[in-house]
């Protein structure tokens, strides 16, 4: 039954947005958007290395993304502002990745597929990797949900109540690296952060609790995948970017609606 490429594409997108929803909320709340982008940009280097060493793309991207995340964490607080540091590392990783790919002259690779994703080409094996990673990310995030939430609000409260914020940050970083590694096929390295942030940000307007926001993000993510696939089928547009476009439109609509409703309530 998984013969239809549209069905496989839909399932792949579904897996990614479901796992990205609660994780994306933490990326938004903890202001890690740029951190996520930097880690994702490093993924191109991971693609080049895995092709050169003939290991699976998933493993290569995961390793390089994790390395990048650890490097950023280790270098932070050593003289440079975080956004400068991330700007240097993210673009350096992307540039080195692109240069490294150009050395692989004997391997014909479609760079565009890694930069913007190639969701319509998702095979059964890809689907297994995507859903395996998605379940793992969802499991990690939900397992540490309460503690991560407390740590997001206050490190000190978390310490006082016997939690270990450093360990949980590491778990969050690992989850981020996994989602990047599995989503590269769906939306590509340049748009992964969009799938983390936009649905979560869109859900904010109508949420009163963190849980509502995570569920809302999941719903908006699913709607974006469905809308993006439908749009790209009928308008013959690239699928990954189409998904992100739908998510962005939902964000704009919900945020505006939220503003209008609140303004009315205030008068």
């Amino acid at each position: 039954m998984l013969d239809d490429f549209m069905l496989r594409a839909g399932l792949a997108g579904l897996g990614v947005v479901l796992a990205a929803a609660p994780l994306g909320c933490f990326v938004v709340w903890r202001r890690m958007a740029f951190f996520g982008a930097a880690t994702a940009h490093a993924a191109v280097l991971g693609v080049a290395l895995s092709l050169a060493l003939s290991v699976s793309i998933f493993a290569g991207v995961l390793a390089v993304s994790l390395l990048m995340a650890v490097l950023v964490t280790a270098l932070s607080g050593r003289g440079y502002a975080m956004d400068t540091l991330l700007g240097v590392l993210a673009h350096a990783a992307l540039a080195f990745g692109l240069v490294a790919v150009s050395f692989l002259s004997d391997v014909r690779i479609d760079l565009m597929a890694y930069l913007f994703g190639d969701i319509l080409a998702v095979g059964r094996g890809d689907l297994a990797v995507i859903w395996g990673g998605a379940v793992l990310v969802l499991g990690l995030t939900l397992w540490r949900w309460q503690a991560l939430l407390l740590e997001t609000i206050s490190d000190e409260l978390a310490h006082a109540e016997g939690h270990d914020p450093r360990r949980d940050s590491l778990i969050l970083t690992i989850a981020l690296a996994i989602i990047i590694a599995v989503a590269i096929k769906v939306v590509g390295v340049l748009l992964i952060t969009a799938l983390l942030i936009i649905p979560a940000a869109a859900a904010r307007a109508f949420s009163h609790t963190p849980e509502q926001m995570a569920l809302g993000a999941a719903g908006i993510g699913m709607l974006s995948v469905a809308g993006g696939l439908w749009g790209s089928w009928h308008l013959d547009t690239p699928t990954g970017p189409s998904i992100v476009c739908v998510a962005a439109l939902i964000f704009a609509a919900l945020t505006t609606l939220g503003r209008v409703i609140r303004a009315k309530a205030a008068t």
Binding site: I153, S154, E156, L157, Q212, M213
Partner: peptide, 14 residues
């Protein structure tokens, strides 16, 4: 524990 200050990010509905 009652901290001196606690900043809740406006993006976090609570």
């Amino acid at each position: 524990y009652v901290p001196q200050r606690l900043h809740i990010d406006p993006t976090l509905p609570l």
